[in-house]
Design a protein around this nucleic acid. Structure first.
Lengths: 140, 140
DNA sequence: GTGAAAAGTTAGCAAAGACTAACTATGTGC
DNA sequence: GCACATAGTTAGTCTTTGCTAACTTTTCAC
């Protein structure tokens, strides 16, 4: 009985993690697209590819999926725009990213490692954890 | 110039994250296999599947890959064993998991959320971050 | 010791995310 | 205004990770 319950609980945890993993790439993309639009006025596949370290056709295919999911809009041979849903997700991601980053630096990590770790961690922190990170980063 | 360098730097970060993502599942498996062997004396596909919340054939297929990669050994219709490489990885994962978990709890997170978040975060923390987490968790 | 339940495997499907090669469109320099 | 470089797309491949359905093996109860 105990075993069953604990197996179920474990399964739920892993299902949650798998769910998060499925969303990671989309989050990376919309966050990056928002950054590019802000920095350069537009988000082009070639720049997305360079920033992510993948080839352009990989980006094309992923953008198709994001469009299918309603996070971006695009026209053939033109650059990419975020839908309002995509913008909202990008904002949320940026917020998480910044909190995690500030937290890690405040903890004493060098900024470069902090950036690396934040990129991996940000997709896996609950709101509750984020709140704790934030208050740690903000404490006097 | 600056743009190019920063794009390259970004790309390296993402390449690192993608690398970590590729290893996550293997790490989850060996960690769980080690737990099952310790708790129940053996690791059976049916239990692995139940704990991970996936179907048994999915487990079979992934175990094939882990065997191919030298992390486990197995015989048809028999339970799974870790190689020394697999054991070492499992130990390392457990260590990381426990440090992250203790850290989150010490930070004030409830144990259940801590467990969820630790499961996602543990694959993305550098040794440097881990050291900081550990000293925070151990401080008086 | 046999037969049914449980466990495990195999085959085959689908989607995602990576790649290369080959093609098409865009835009720029002269 | 045209040619060519750059950007983007399309097609096709591979691997991973999920699934179901169908089959085989093992185990256990009687």
């Amino acid at each position: 009985m105990t075993d069953e319950r604990s197996a179920d609980a474990r399964a739920e945890v892993f299902q949650g993690v798998r769910e998060a993993r499925r969303n990671e790439l989309a989050e990376d993309y919309v966050e990056l697209i928002a950054d590019l639009i802000q920095e350069q006025g537009e988000a082009r596949p070639v720049d997305i590819a360079a920033r992510l370290g993948v080839r352009v056709p990989t980006v094309t295919k992923t953008l198709d999926r994001l469009a299918r999911e309603g996070l971006i809009t695009r026209a053939k041979y033109r650059s990419v725009f975020l839908t309002s849903e995509g913008s909202a997700l990008a904002l949320e991601c940026r917020r998480r990213h910044e909190i995690v980053l500030r937290f890690l630096i405040r903890l004493g990590l060098d900024p470069e490692t902090a950036e690396r770790d934040a990129e991996g961690i940000e997709h896996h922190v609950s709101e509750r954890t984020l709140a704790l990170f934030e208050s740690y980063a903000n404490r006097p």
